[in-house]
Amino acid sequence: MAAKENQERIWELARKWQDDSITEDERKEFNDWYKSFDDTGMPDLLGDSPEALKERMLRSVMKMKSNSDRAAAQTTFFSYRVAAAAIVLLCLSVGAYLFLRPSIKYSAHKIAVIKTDASPGRNKAILTLSNGEKIDLDQAQSGILAREKSAIVKKTKDGRLAYNNTALGAGPNNGEMLYNTVTTPRAGQYQITLSDGSDVWLNACSSISFPLAFGENERQVKISGEVYFEVKKNKHLPFRVISNNQIVEVLGTHFNINAYVDESVVTTTLLEGSVKISQLNQPSAKFLKPGQQSIIQPGKAPINIQQVDTEIAVAWKNGYFRFEHADLQSLMRQFSRWYDVDVSYEGAISDDFFEGQIPRSSKLSEALKILELGDVHFKIKDKKLIVLP
């Protein structure tokens, strides 16, 4: 079985195990996969209750880690494999299990006690109107928030920001295009429906500036941070996104742009349709197909393209942290944005890599307890997350 197909099969079995719909044959298959990571006494999953399994898995992971420390010089792959086994399996079972049953606690001698905590992010953003007025969307009631020329701005009952479709094609006001901006803080996210019917999702620490009414020749917006688009198709009116030295042009498609200034590269991931990628003041351009991701180092050429698992790129929109071969600092930047904490490091920074999935609805302490199984330790003081050696 191909590696990706095998991974997808394991995710499926783990989900079935979570909701108790797994058959005996599937449970045995899941158990065989789990035991295949190492022969150092992995627990048998058959017949275990969730509570008993969680405890046995924790003991085995710690034993595996201890054994791997003694054999660290043998191979770097083994160390990574142990970390992957711990994080993937425990995010699927224990991670989701913590979310479903938050009353279950880890034993203090196994996982360091985290005395303070941070709640996960939620829907909150600031809308800045063309006249400079600011509206706190988290506090605003549903209904009409503003009327600007021919555009009606409203907050829907499900919490989205929506612009009246009749504004499309209205063009600039007396030669001037009027813009609104939506900005999410740390621990915030928000969804917007633009005047052309395109849907936009903003991750934490992100923004989008857009005209109240798109012009007759193009639809253009500017973003920062991370934004997912589902662009309304219009072959006569191209849709352009400008972000951190990059221009993305589409006619109608689904794609994700990660353009955080504290990340070393800008990535654009295509899920559906086709997009054209170029850099500001650069003549060359490349086209993405579904399942591809462009990678740009701002100010540098060329544009690199690679095949990726698109679900990883949009996991944040679907309510998860999802990581594959991710380093610790990358994870901490995501946690900083979503939990509104500052991150600092004491001592050497771990060079381990992590794979897995954690619900973004988890409290910070719950997410950290999972990562601590990879022999990384933390403490939280006020609004600062400190990574310990």
Rank of each mutant, 00 (worst) to 15 (best):
I126V: 14
F77S: 10
K369L: 04
I126M: 12
V82I: 15
C205R: 13
G319L: 01
D309F: 01
P172I: 14
A72W: 13
L137M: 11
V221F: 02
S66W: 10
A170P: 02
K222M: 11
M62L: 15
L92Q: 13
K381N: 14
Y339L: 05
E148G: 06
E366R: 12
R56E: 12
I296Q: 00
W316A: 01
E355G: 09
K235V: 15
V376T: 13
I152P: 06
D158A: 10
S66H: 10
L202D: 00
N217F: 05
N165I: 13
M177R: 09
V266D: 00
H377F: 11
G171S: 09
E311A: 10
N203Y: 04
S278F: 02
V250C: 01
V250G: 00
S107W: 06
F353V: 12
D196R: 06
E272T: 09
L92V: 09
Q220H: 10
N6Q: 13
A167D: 02
Q18G: 07
K379C: 09
A151M: 07
L98V: 05
K383M: 06
I349T: 09
R101S: 12
V250W: 01
D342F: 07
N256F: 08
I303G: 00
E29V: 08
R101T: 12
S79H: 08
N217I: 15
G225N: 08
K289G: 00
A86S: 06
R70T: 14
D382R: 11
R70S: 11
D48Q: 15
L328V: 04
G252E: 04
A84E: 15
R186F: 12
I358D: 05
D19N: 08
S284T: 15
E176F: 11
V261L: 12
T116R: 10
P283W: 14
L92C: 13
V182R: 07
S206F: 07
A204C: 02
T23W: 05
I349K: 08
G47D: 04
L212G: 04
I386Y: 01
L161V: 10
V88Q: 11
L237H: 09
M177L: 12
S336W: 06
S60A: 15
D117G: 01
I358E: 02
K369F: 03
W316P: 00
